[in-house]
């Protein structure tokens, strides 16, 4: 019974967060975290549950962001309308793609998603007259305060996690897992694997696109290299899924929190800890170390990928029992 309460407690904490912490910086980080919960959950649906690993989440994220941005730029309507069509735009990209590319399996499908993202990135860069190319699209954010964005992001995160939970405990959810475990066996049992893979992709594309249009509204600026980035979006989405736990409902939430924290930790030199140390001790070597750490945040990221895959292949939530045994020496009654 106690386990069921954890998500509710977490939700209560999150709902109260901006009322307690009024610092803009931490609110910003939390908005990013909630956005990654949405993207991570979406990735987890297509990759973790259905087994179709996508390396091109940025394609859907960018489609959503550009849908909102282009709408505001060309038609001069509020970019919030983009929230209504962002997810649908990503669906419009995902649908023909899935239709064609789901004949591919495993790593080949992953490569096709990679190619989709590359095509979109080059496409938006070249079509300057329509998308403004590398200049990017800039809009004025609606709110000065971060709190409205926070609650919108929180709402999206909650709905996306709940929808994962609902979907995964319904019939299609079981079909997804059966496709992951053995596609041929699933097919022979009469599951229309192509249809269900499309359904899973549609879910993932929709939520990733929604997160993209939120990003457009919140950040106010996008360009092809930001939203179609392999490292910053696609790989990050995979990491969020893997660190947290592939094929678990709350894994992406844990993963998103850890990844956003780690990313920020490296970027800011452990939240200015090293800078502070350097100033108090006046030591040159600590200052140099802080410098190296801040510059090497992508390197830290890469090392983290390698380490996580080696040590925790099923993520923190997925390998929780293993962690409990090894680190805390708690043996759960079998």
């Amino acid at each position: 019974m106690k386990k069921r309460l954890y998500p509710l407690i977490l939700l209560a904490v999150l709902a109260g967060f901006p009322l307690v912490v009024e610092d803009n910086y931490y609110q910003h980080l939390m908005i990013l975290f909630l956005m990654w919960v949405v993207i991570g959950s979406a990735w987890n649906m297509i990759a973790g549950y259905t087994g179709q690993v996508s390396f091109g989440d940025a394609a859907f994220f960018g489609s959503g962001a550009y849908a909102a941005g282009l709408l505001a730029h060309h038609l001069h309507v509020s970019a919030w309308w983009g929230m209504a069509i962002g997810g649908l735009a990503a669906l419009a990209v995902g649908f023909p793609f899935g239709w064609i590319c789901f004949r591919l399996r495993g790593a080949y499908f992953a490569l096709a998603t990679l190619a989709l993202n590359e095509v979109l990135r080059h496409g938006t860069t070249i079509a300057e007259s329509f998308t403004r190319g590398m200049l990017g699209i800039m809009i004025m954010p609606t709110f000065v305060s971060k709190v409205p964005y926070y609650y919108i992001a929180l709402g999206m995160a909650v709905v996306s996690v709940l929808s994962v939970r609902l979907l995964i405990r319904s019939k299609p959810g079981y079909y997804f897992v059966s496709i992951r475990e053995d596609q041929d066996a699933a097919e022979s049992l009469g599951i229309d694997t192509h249809f269900y893979k499309m359904l899973s992709l549609a879910f993932a594309a929709f939520w990733t696109g929604m997160a993209g249009s939120l990003y457009m509204n919140y950040m106010g600026f996008i360009d092809p290299h930001v939203v179609f980035s392999l490292h910053d979006i696609s790989i990050m989405a995979i990491l969020v899924g893997i660190v947290g736990g592939v094929g678990t409902v709350y894994g992406p939430t844990v993963g998103a929190f850890i990844m956003v924290a780690v990313q920020e930790m490296f970027r800011s030199g452990f939240f200015g800890l090293f800078k502070f140390l350097a100033e108090t001790t006046g030591s040159e070597s600590v200052r140099a170390l802080a410098d190296v750490l801040t510059k090497g945040h992508v390197l830290g990221f890469g090392l983290l990928v390698v380490l996580v895959i080696l040590v925790l292949p099923n993520g923190i939530v997925g390998d929780w029992d293993k962690i409990k045994k090894k680190v805390f020496r708690i043996h759960s009654p079998a």
Partner: peptide, 8 residues
Amino acid sequence: LMTVGIGM
């Protein structure tokens, strides 16, 4: 995924 990490 590991090769992606190694590449990074």
